[in-house]
Design a binder for these strands. Structure first.
Lengths: 377, 377
DNA sequence: CTGTTAGCGCCTTCAA
DNA sequence: TTGAAGGCGCTAACAG
């Protein structure tokens, strides 16, 4: 009942398994035309499907690319996954998916599982963390990756190198200019916004979040503004929502203090309190924060401005349109995947520190100001 | 340089490979405690990782679950994928991802690739098509699946059976009550909406779309309403947008015909033209349509109501909140995946027509009326 | 309880 | 060009 084997095909075609193998895959050597045809027919009639496991075992290479994400249902990762998938198809490979929820321990498991399957390469998306609690996990992950690379595996990490990882051969980092872009966002915002800024960040130690926070502060400074207060919460919609609630309370309090201009409803003009501009370190958090403000009867951008980061596609129809930084997520996935393609001979070598920068077209982003941060009431 | 093997571990521990194998995996038989410990240490010190390919070859089972979707970045599929992933983790399996763009030809390729990798089971999400152009593709896909099942593979399809597929053992269909739910949506809407209905559907022949269209018409009929006109467009945001543009033009035309009640802007009260309620067969299309209306200066629900289907999580913060039918996408993925788990002995058999219904908790949905279809101006 | 012996299905030297 | 033989790493029957 099991699928038919190469041997069966060979027998049916009246040739040796070796010959059958040669015609059924792109072997260097060309079998006789007539023979080839016979083999092909035999394969067809038996519905032969090569056993990739056996092939992999024999060739010690599996045609698999492992992808590690926090959560595949998160549009950020889904977009990256699409890019990875495309690049994988170009390489005629399949992608193995692992979702980890973000913990280095689970990530380590995933790497081990990929290694067990002899994945040719691994792409790790999702922010690194340098919190204390993750320290052990990180070094175990680093060790696992190191071993994987030493056994000939290729790894690409999106964003930051794994904390504590050496930079073995085959280890690539796709840099994402989070800090710089957040800085640009801040300066642009500062140009059109008089009020104060608040940052809604993820937990401290999440590198991506930290970069964006830092960059934003720098941008503010460059623009001659005072630093923004940073609220910490979960790196997802609900974190944004919580922070939004907190901010809504403050905004309302400030308003009533400044003068109860109108109890009939919040008025953009009334109290002298300067309006707040909220920067959430990703779009999903921004949406959460916006929802919270709205649920408290505040309106955007009338009562507060809000900006996000990523420019998630599904969120582009959100109203008011969200100011954000567009990141070429799909490209990021593609670039990361391509970076793991073993370099051909004639490589111009890396820059000495081991980890090379996966340079095929460096990742850039674009500040995208929209309605949610318009100053006009 | 290659990863260390079981044989090396065995040698280091001074035992036979068989023994090493027995301790390193859950073999039925238990080796001596001291021996076990020695083996474990040897494995640890060598950084041994079992070769899943070899294991799979020997056991003829790979621990792989293949998932086929149109597009992993589509939130509908991403949500299902999350469910599949969870169930896979429960079964201690990994998921192999294939995205096909929806064509049966690519789906067939994917099935063949999964078969080659000896995936233990395959989950197919994404609407089936019965269009003429897909006829050949469908039957090839059916044949491929049939072969896969005959070789012992398990298949679960979300929604509809593959067109033309026999119902071999191991072939499961996770039914989604699209038609019924669309009907319920229609009747509920009919209760609070006086105007006419229009359906924005996908291309004819897309089974999921067709079901929803049909169900909606039935619901309308039950409510004593006349059938809705059906606009056909692509099954994605841009299709919805196109249809929305068309509808916006009509709405405006109807208004000026009925009487230029106010040129200052569209007014809900003014013209006697009954307001339209648009049913888009999925949320993403609905969002597209809404965006189109908005771009034409129309407002929802003031100038037209709109409803979708799926209740995509990322879209829940959309304003006005979208009336829709909630589908437990994640559960669907989970249920489909679990259905492919080979039944234990003592199975109560199938219902004779071969394909069984993957009954572990039938899928149900829930009509969810929100702001976008509120009658009040 | 342990070790030995065969494969799982395929690829890849080698010799013919 | 084709065939025969050995091995990829592991498991599953046997034998001890």
């Amino acid at each position: 009942m099991a699928a038919s084997t190469l041997t069966e095909v060979a027998r049916l075609a009246g040739v040796s398994p070796a010959t059958a193998s040669r015609v059924l895959n792109g072997s260097a050597r060309k079998p006789g035309k007539d023979i080839a045809e016979r083999v092909r027919q035999a394969a067809e009639s038996l519905g032969y499907i090569p056993n990739a496991q056996a092939q992999g075992l024999a060739k010690s290479s599996s045609g698999l690319i492992g992808l590690i994400v926090h959560d595949i249902a998160d549009p950020y990762f889904a977009a990256i996954a699409r890019g990875v998938q495309e690049a994988a198809r170009e390489q005629r490979k399949m992608v193995l998916l692992a979702t980890t929820g973000g913990g280095p321990a689970e990530e380590k498991e995933a790497v081990a599982a990929f290694a067990a399957r002899r994945a040719d390469s691994i792409v790790i998306a999702g922010s690194r963390s340098c919190r204390d609690e993750d320290k052990d996990g990180n070094s175990e992950l680093a060790a696992e990756l190191d071993r994987y690379c030493r056994n000939g595996g290729q790894v690409a990490v999106v964003g930051h190198p794994v904390v504590g990882a050496a930079a073995p051969e085959g280890y690539h980092v796709v840099k994402v200019p989070n800090q710089e872009l957040a800085g640009r966002l801040a300066t642009e915002l500062a140009g059109s916004w008089d009020g104060d800024f608040v940052i809604v960040g993820g937990p401290e130690g999440l590198l991506t979040s930290d970069d964006r926070v830092r960059g934003f502060q720098e941008g503010l400074e460059r623009a001659g503004r005072r630093p923004a207060e940073v609220l910490r919460s979960a790196f997802n919609r609900s974190g944004g929502y919580d922070a939004g609630l907190e901010l809504a309370a403050r905004i309302k309090a400030a308003r009533t203090n400044a003068g109860p201009s109108g109890e009939g409803g919040p008025s953009g003009e009334g109290g002298g309190a300067p309006k707040l501009c909220i920067f959430a370190v990703n779009d999903v958090m921004a949406i959460g924060a916006a929802a919270a403000l709205r649920s408290e009867g505040l309106r955007i951008p009338r009562d507060a401005a809000i900006a996000g980061f990523d420019d998630i596609e599904t969120l582009r129809d959100f109203r008011p349109a969200l100011s954000t930084v567009r990141l070429p997520l799909e490209d990021i996935g593609r670039v990361a995947t391509r970076a793991t393609q073993r370099r051909l001979a004639g490589d111009d070598g890396d820059d000495g520190d081991g980890a090379d920068d996966a340079s095929p077209g460096d990742i850039t982003g674009e500040v995208t100001l929209r309605r949610s941060t318009e100053a006009a009431a």
